[in-house]
Simulated assay, not measured.
Amino acid sequence: MDFSWTERQQAAHDRVLAGARALGAPGPAAPADLRERWAACAALGLTGLSVPEELGGQGYDALTTAHVVEAAGRGCPDMGLLFAVTAHLFATVMPIVEHGDKALREEVVPRLADGTWIGANAITEQEAGSDVTALRTTAVRHDGHYVLNGTKTFVSNAPAADLLLVYAVTDPAFGFLGVTCFAVDRDTPGVTVGAPFDKPTLDSCPAATVTFTDARVPASRVVGQPGQGAAIFQSSMRWERTCLFAGYLGQMARLTDEAVQHALDRRQFGHPIAANQAVSHRIADMRLRLETARLLLHRTCWLMDRGEHTPLDIALAKLHTAESAVQTALDATQLFAGSAYSTRTDIARALGDALPARTFSGTSDIQRELIAKGLGL
């Protein structure tokens, strides 16, 4: 593995870092407000990083994509916005890019890649979180269309979405082989998006429940083949559990830089707090976690680009990055103390935004299970 970056990779990183810094502080979660900030992200190319150029994207491989997403996370403290954009790209756009037929790709991907459309991934249900095989939303074939019925929850971007990627059971007798993936227009009759959730974290990414009541979806909107839904979802998870989590590398890098500067500036008992070993060692651990998470995640992306990755590689990267992001944010709040909740509320916000990393895209416990299976346990 070559640890250097090409001129193109570094230029993309630097451009996005500068642009992300200009995005400023987190904004409200209202759909109209998201669209305004979404346009700024689209102008940076974030909505189509890994999408082929012929479909309107940047055409980056996984490693370059992770490098650029890290820059966005480092430059912009609004992790909710970055989560909204990367969930759109990796959980909605890439499954269509990689598994949709030519007509579907050409119809919807360019508008998703350039940010004209916002995508939302609808798989989670009240009784189907980690157990994605327990889906109850159904899709029944009638001539040239399917009729969808059921309810999805925790659908990120749903209040602002133009297109929903929906997973539904088409053949209950076949279990996970009976799940099919659909690209569903938001304005399809029978599709109802609920009110945005009042979320305490990642709150600039609106989320809601989506209900399907006899919603008719053309058979041409099946992504891949009927019954391939579970495989398509697992394929999308390799993008989410790596490139999406590169945003947390950026957050860790920003918090570490700010902790160093704070330790040098803040004085107690007549000297900078950096002179206290407890403080300097805490910051040393923050940097260590950043570097190890980055190496593990970059290695996994490199393996993905070579077609050599395994579920074990991805689970290791996701688990370590998520846990490191939480601990680094905890350390930052400890170092900034009361100012993290008064004059530097971005520090406390970073902790709140890091905590869901242990849950979405597969909980930390699920990642440990995948690691154990990968070790033959």
Rank of each mutant, 00 (worst) to 15 (best):
E36C: 03
A87S: 15
N149I: 00
T138W: 05
L296D: 10
M286W: 10
H145W: 07
F176E: 14
V217A: 04
R289F: 12
L319H: 13
E106N: 14
R266P: 01
V210D: 03
A30N: 03
H99G: 01
I347P: 05
V16K: 03
T153W: 01
V326C: 11
A322G: 06
L63W: 10
P206H: 10
Y167S: 06
F182N: 07
A231H: 07
T242H: 02
R136N: 12
I366T: 14
P200A: 10
E54C: 01
I96A: 00
V140Y: 00
V210E: 05
D131G: 07
G175T: 08
Y341M: 06
A322Y: 03
A72W: 04
A350W: 02
R306P: 04
V93Q: 00
C243P: 01
A39T: 11
E70V: 01
H262R: 15
V69P: 02
R37I: 00
A122F: 06
T138D: 06
V69W: 10
L295D: 14
S361I: 00
V191H: 06
L148Q: 11
R111N: 08
G175Y: 05
G229D: 05
A293T: 05
E7R: 14
T192Q: 12
T170N: 07
S342C: 06
E125P: 05
D78T: 06
N276H: 12
R238E: 09
P77Y: 01
M94D: 03
L55P: 09
T201L: 00
A173Q: 12
T201P: 00
A42C: 07
G376W: 10
V260R: 15
G338L: 13
A332R: 11
R37D: 04
R216G: 00
I118C: 02
A84K: 11
D285M: 11
R289W: 12
Q277K: 13
R289K: 13
W117R: 10
A259M: 11
G59C: 03
D101A: 09
G374I: 07
V222Y: 09
L17W: 09
T116P: 01
D313Q: 10
D331H: 13
L163G: 06
T310E: 10
L82K: 08
L148A: 08
